[in-house]
Nucleic acid binder design. Structure first.
Length: 211
DNA sequence: CTCGAGATGGCCT
DNA sequence: GGCCATCTCGAGT
């Protein structure tokens, strides 16, 4: 990867991430998330994200009804990972955004493996092709080896097992639309952003899955 | 490609 | 008890 294209100083990146989630979300397209788990390194270039608002603001957000043990990381400072368990078997990863206390975040929905593809393949044996390795939020965490242990990890720490590198020039946004798994009020808020890369996950409105 | 169904358990009311 | 910010597999178009 071309390191010179990525901002390295945490203080600059942290300030960018303290903006609102819908502002930060498109800036994460083209960002690289690097994991070091059990000594093995895998990196993904982010191709699809969704923004989630804070307490009392966004009915689709985990933070909507206030702080709980699960969503506590969302209420912390920006630039940390909010990792949660869902459907009894999957982990999903977010970048916490906004100032401390605002409880907003950006869900990482899909990416392209740019480093450690052999490790990613071993972690995702059901993937039919390399483009499916990190196509989908739970597939992305599986490929990276991300679990609940990473909840709260500082993405901007030099020695962190999870590190985020923002591009000085984000990839172009070619898809803006409603979020994928969100039903009810707020379902139509256009807070899903994606590039045109083939790893972008198929779009399924929540209403189609709940008759 | 699309669709439907089952897996599987934590979280919150 | 009901609801999940999902994935996989098999079968159909």
């Amino acid at each position: 990867m071309h390191v010179s294209l990525y901002m390295q100083t945490g203080i600059v990146t942290r300030r960018l991430l303290s903006a609102s989630p819908e502002t930060v979300a498109p800036r994460l397209l083209g960002a690289v998330l690097e994991s070091t788990v059990h000594g093995e390194r895998v990196s993904v270039r982010i191709t699809e994200v969704e923004a989630y608002g804070g307490a009392g603001e966004d009915p689709g957000s985990h933070a909507f009804r206030g702080q709980t043990p699960r969503n506590a990381t969302m209420f912390g400072p920006p630039g940390h990972a909010y990792v949660y368990f869902t459907y009894g078997m999957h982990w999903c990863a977010n970048v916490v955004t906004g100032p401390e206390g605002s409880a907003s975040a950006v869900l990482l929905r899909a990416g392209e493996i740019v480093e450690g593809i052999e490790v990613a393949r071993a972690r995702r044996p059901s993937a039919r092709s390399d483009r499916d390795l990190a196509r989908g939020p739970a597939r992305l965490t599986t490929a990276l080896g991300v679990t609940g242990e990473h909840d709260g990890a500082d993405l901007l720490g030099d020695a962190s097992p999870l590190r985020l590198f923002l591009p000085s020039r984000p990839d172009p946004v070619v898809v803006v639309g409603p979020r994928t798994g969100v039903a009810g009020p707020g379902a139509l808020t256009p807070w899903r952003f994606a590039t045109d890369h083939p790893t972008v996950s198929p779009y399924r409105p929540a209403s189609r899955r709940s008759p």
